[in-house]
Write a protein that binds this DNA or RNA. Structure first.
Lengths: 233, 233
DNA sequence: AGCTGGTATATGTATGAACATATTAATAAG
DNA sequence: CTTATTAATATGTTCATACATATACCAGCT
């Protein structure tokens, strides 16, 4: 019955959220169909569709053809994490970024890496160990393997001035990847590099990127003690 | 000059990704404007817009009015984490979910919680400690504070059968929240609950949810040893 | 130089109409 | 009673068109 004219998709999204919030539409409820909402809000179905689609992508709504749109039972608490370049991450917290290459050489990867990157036995690949610092204090250990057979250019890079992290972003397009977060007790070597006690809990991010079926790189980032990864929703 | 007819937004998104991938368009490059792409792909600008908008949301492209669209310099490695109900998380790995309430009482929160939830001194709020199990083995410790002044219904719940986690999803609408991930050395109490050695590194997720300016709940989830949070991109 | 205002331009949004597609519900065949 | 077929329907997508809006660029002024 054409009560309001919130005729922008942002306005409609806000109104729908508000109705979910004030429990006019409760979790699990079916909400009116697009045409009816369009009439009520005094806009076209296209606009309603845009608003509802965004909410469905965010996990707030669930939509099915013919059935209709309902409020999600578990609002999928989706958090989107931005994984920035370490350099940017350090700059963002107002500290001075530093980088130091510790090791760079071709060697046989351990079984774990061999499996993850699908490297045959006896094949040497590029291993890089580096330290990123914030105000000259250890910030992150970058322990990286690069498949130089897939990425021949990488063999010409010495990674002395700039981290592999940065070079890869510009020069290694990927199709997909995996990422995992975990907590581990730091090894003696890592503890030494980070100037912490051996065994101290540290936050680790492991990332694998692929070019179709070929693994490009595997990196394990070990963060300074007390590091927190934050986001909002 | 109308070479192909990939005239669906998904097709166009794929084609654009492919061109970025094969380095026809390199990071930082300006790509043709919507109208030109529409002509080339033999579709309307609306469709191109949809494809490019999605890619911009994903962080692959950066768009500015008048300037145009360019390939992101740092493809914002955005990973979207789905934070499911613990029950669903356990079921997903094919294990039997269990829940045990350890403690539930009104008490004075420590300073840390008081600050985060903006609770005045001397005010008691609801504290819940519970253990979630997978195949009868400890999986997650849920250490939660609920502001029962904002959420009066919560005081009537005993949380014996179902976790606060589940009740809140259905009964506590929120406007926004924060989430943080970290690694810590487990305390003696948590180690005991999780049947691990005190000091072992454990993964922690801390979440705060708000109803406008009022904090609804603060929860700290401490996961079993070796837990990994995974996602793909 | 620096500031001001105007203009051109690429993206952003809205519309109504049309057709596509998934899925439910009704119906007919076995 | 069960299963295959068909119709109905809500969302999904595309289109041509129009207008809105941010902003880069330029001209003219101080």
């Amino acid at each position: 019955m054409r009560l309001k004219t919130i005729n922008s998709w942002l306005g409609i999204r806000a109104e729908v959220l508000s109705r979910i919030y004030d429990r006019t539409w409760k979790p699990g409820d079916l909400i009116p169909k697009e045409i009816d909402l369009a009439f009520e809000f005094g806009c076209s179905r296209t606009t309603v569709n845009r608003a509802l689609r965004e909410l469905a992508e965010a996990g707030t709504l669930e939509r099915r053809r013919k059935s209709g749109t309902r409020v999600s039972l578990n609002p999928a608490n989706k958090a989107t994490l931005k994984i920035p370049l370490i350099k940017n991450e350090v700059n963002k917290i107002g500290k001075t970024y530093g980088y130091k290459l510790i090791q760079r050489k071709l060697c046989l990867p351990p079984d774990k890496i061999k499996n993850k990157m699908r490297i045959n036995s006896g094949i040497k690949i590029l291993h890089i160990l580096a330290l990123h610092t914030a105000n000259d204090l250890p910030f992150v250990i970058e322990d990286r393997w690069i498949n130089q057979h897939v990425l021949p250019e990488s063999e010409k890079q010495n990674f002395k001035e700039h981290s592999a992290n940065e070079w890869l972003v510009l020069n290694a397009p990927y199709t997909h990847g995996t990422i995992s977060f975990s907590a581990i007790n730091s090894s003696a070597e890592n503890a030494h590099l980070l100037s912490i006690k051996s065994g101290a809990a540290v936050f680790e991010i492991e990332r694998n990127t692929f070019d179709k079926e070929n693994a490009i790189t595997n990196v394990c980032l070990t963060y300074e003690r007390g590091y927190r990864m934050l986001t909002t929703f």
